Amino acid sequence: MNINSEYLLKKLTDILAIDSPSGDCIEVINYLNKNFKDLGLTTKISPKGALTVIIKGRDVENPVAVTAHVDTLGAMVKEIKPNGRLKLTQIGGYPWPTIDGEYCTISSLDGKKYRGTILFDKTSCHIYGDIPRTMIRNEENIEVRIDELVFSKKDTTKLGIEVGDYVYFDKRTEIRKNGFIKSRHLDDKACVAILLEVARNIVENNNIPSKTTYFIISNYEEVGHGGAGLINNKIKEVIAVDMATPGIGQQSKEQEVTICAKESTGPYDLELKKKLIKIGKEKNLNYNIDVFKYYNSDARVALVAGGQFKHALIGPGVDASHAYERTHIQGLENTVKLLIAYLNS
């Protein structure tokens, strides 16, 4: 199977460079829309801002769907403090300590961008002694120090910064020669890049899927309703492509593709899981089967919204999820291969 890893990594790097916390995904959706159209595929953007790509297959009566989400974690200005610094409210779920010390960008409604640093409000050991070492980080004591001459709330508002403005975390993307990929927001931009590579492979090799396929890229997954309302009643099977979770007690690995048997709300479809495992064996892929403890996917959300389809979840292992994440090119490649083989089955 011809996998263009250079194309895959280039698209991943491009996607990671575009800030897209949940609710602020217009730019990245437009980027993806252009890329899929450049491949000659039909696309449409929903009123909700999600992207659907249509790939015609040999069987048009029993379509399938593949989902991934391009929205990421982020933050929003909750309050402008009397000293001009910013309190934050989270977009998505992550531990506050994972952003302590991170560089960031504040995006005002009028399009201005300001740089800053996310900090514990008692960071200096020379002033606060042991407090920086022992205090739990939370929404009350994490703040943004803006890289401007601001010393009061009035100074900050003069810049055009207001409550409700988005705050983007620096991604710090690094692709190593040994195959490791480090960055924030590999969840789930790594899998969006995988869909681009699958689409390229289908188009350039005239590899027509067995069934008409919808690629659905959602923009609200991290806040719980990304997959709701995006999957029509004609679709018979849905594969969610999202990160797997390596760690203690887990089988997932960064260099492999994981087939999820169950996540926090219940099991995935047994017959579809068996089908994917059979493909993994027949194609001699590096795969594993895992159960995720604290997890939900767009396929599950679409079911709760009333969807009537078989559902499955696959994806590459992503270490340190919802923090500074890491995966491996082999995990991405194995996911591409499993997905292409499934679409041809």
Results as ranks from 00 to 15, higher is better:
R145K: 15
D147S: 11
E148N: 14
L149N: 13
V150I: 13
V150F: 02
V150M: 03
V150Y: 00
F151G: 06
S152G: 13
K153R: 12
K153S: 09
K154Q: 15
D155F: 04
D155Y: 05
D155V: 14
D155P: 06
D155L: 07
T156C: 01
T156R: 01
T156Q: 01
T157A: 07
L159W: 03
L159N: 02
L159S: 00
L159Y: 02
G160A: 06
I161V: 14
E162L: 11
E162N: 14
E162M: 13
V163G: 02
V163P: 02
V163D: 00
G164V: 04
Y166N: 01
V167P: 00
V167M: 00
F169N: 05
F169M: 12
K171V: 14
K171T: 15
K171M: 11
R172G: 08
R172N: 12
R172A: 15
T173F: 09
T173K: 10
T173I: 15
E174P: 01
R176Q: 13
R176H: 10
K177R: 12
K177T: 09
N178I: 03
N178M: 08
N178H: 11
N178C: 08
G179L: 09
F180Q: 12
F180I: 13
I181N: 00
I181P: 02
I181W: 04
K182C: 12
K182N: 12
K182G: 14
S183F: 09
S183N: 08
R184E: 05
R184K: 13
R184Q: 07
H185E: 10
L186R: 04
D187A: 06
D187K: 07
D187Y: 05
D188R: 05
K189Y: 02
K189Q: 10
K189V: 06
A190M: 10
A190I: 11
A190K: 06
C191A: 07
C191R: 02
V192N: 09
V192Y: 06
V192G: 05
A193R: 08
I194Q: 00
I194C: 02
I194M: 06
L196Q: 02
E197Q: 08
V198L: 10
V198N: 05
A199H: 03
A199P: 04
A199G: 08
R200H: 11
N201P: 00
I202V: 15
I202Q: 05
I202N: 06
I202E: 07
E204G: 02
E204W: 01
N205S: 11
N205Y: 14
N206Y: 14
N206T: 11
N206V: 07
N207S: 12
I208P: 01
I208R: 09
P209Y: 01
T212Q: 03
T212L: 06
T212N: 04
T212G: 08
